[in-house]
């Protein structure tokens, strides 16, 4: 169970980071030919990417501390 939740947090973080960086932030690649390249598809997408990145590492905290949170 603990491993499952840890993996969920880690994978969730990676997915969130990748999805927001690649799909929700401003488009990647090619010669930027119009204004759409300058705007994220979802405003604050970079914040989501950063939260995702931070989540990946906090999975380790979840893994080591979780039982305590549950028991107490």
């Amino acid at each position: 169970m603990r491993i499952a939740i840890t993996a969920l947090v880690a994978v969730g973080g990676i997915v969130l980071a990748l999805v927001s960086a690649l799909l929700l932030a401003a488009p990647l690649g090619g010669a930027p030919f119009d204004e759409s390249f300058s705007n994220p598809r979802l405003v604050y997408a970079p914040t989501l990417a950063v939260i995702g990145v931070a989540l990946v590492f906090s999975a380790a905290i979840v893994y080591e501390l979780m039982p305590r949170i549950g028991d107490d």
């Binding site: 010669a31 930027p32 030919f33 119009d34 204004e35 390249f37 300058s38 705007n39 994220p40």
Partner: peptide
């Protein structure tokens, strides 16, 4: 058309209309 300045702008202030 392939503006390096547009590519590197971190916040999309420089853009091609």
């Amino acid at each position: 058309d392939n503006a390096p300045c547009v590519k590197v702008c971190p916040v999309g202030a420089r853009y091609t209309r």
